[in-house]
């Protein structure tokens, strides 16, 4: 199979043999896939500068096995040049994608939201809303249905109530003893509308996405979170 000039991003690259790289890419129509860039690490290679995350690329490849061979790589635009915390956040997105998106499975929605999120990080928009919106969209696209309008019994969520998330069931009214895992209905409504301006909503959204991602990520924690621990 030959694919020409497919829009995509490199999520991660690792050295392979003496002069090659294995690229973990996210592409618009073909989802996540591994490409081998032969000779990309040799001294004369001009590919190497392009083989970096956060650069909008056009990728061409061929091959039948799960590891395809990169035939050409061109940049669509300049590298996004993420800096500081925005760069850490970009690395966080890449780690989420490499951990959770299955290979060779077309996921145009995830690609779109990734591209949007990277653009927002490059524009240095406030971090939390960008990350939470991406996480919620990603959960939705991975097939994790999160209904932010109705509770487990199909009743509308009410702004003034407190709710708890029950895995496999949905929202239920929080019992009298409130825990850290109880969410005010008003925050859930804001999340549904994609409005993360309020810091309280941001906090709820962060707790909620962590609860939801936990079973998907399993035992191994996300490493990129460590980058934030000392800087904040």
């Amino acid at each position: 199979m030959r694919v020409e000039l497919q829009p995509g991003y490199i999520l991660h690259s690792r050295p392979f043999r003496d002069t090659s790289l294995i690229l973990d890419c996210l592409t618009e129509d073909y989802g996540r896939l591994s490409l081998i860039a032969k000779g990309a690490r040799s001294a004369k290679s001009r590919q190497r500068q392009l083989c970096q995350p956060f650069t909008p690329l056009l990728l061409s490849w061929q091959g039948k096995s799960s590891l395809k061979t990169l035939t050409s790589i061109e940049s669509r635009q300049l590298p996004l040049g993420l800096k500081g915390e925005f760069l850490f956040s970009g690395l966080y997105l890449n780690e989420l994608l490499t951990r959770l998106v299955p290979e060779q499975d077309s996921c145009p929605e995830i690609y779109q939201s990734y591209e949007v999120a990277l653009g927002q990080l490059a524009d240095m928009l406030p971090l939390e809303p960008v990350l939470r919106a991406f996480e919620l969209r990603m959960l939705e696209d991975l097939g994790y249905h999160l209904d932010l309008s109705r509770d487990a019994d199909g009743l509308d969520l009410r702004a003034e109530e407190m709710y708890q998330w029950w895995p496999e069931q949905g929202w239920r009214l929080a019992s009298d003893t409130l825990t850290a895992q109880s969410f005010p209905g008003v925050h859930l409504q804001a999340m549904r509308e994609g409005d993360f301006q309020d810091p309280q909503t941001q906090r709820s959204a962060k707790v909620l996405t962590r609860i939801l991602f936990k079973p998907l990520l399993g035992e191994r924690p996300l490493q990129s979170r460590k980058l934030f621990q000392k800087t904040r």
């Binding site: 970096q52 800096k83 500081g84 760069l87 850490f88 690395l91 980058l227 800087t231």
Partner: peptide, 15 residues
């Protein structure tokens, strides 16, 4: 001057 190198530099600069 790679993505990882820049991230490392920023992290150290903060400290």
């Amino acid at each position: 001057p790679t993505v990882e190198g820049e991230a490392t530099a920023h992290y150290i600069a903060d400290q």
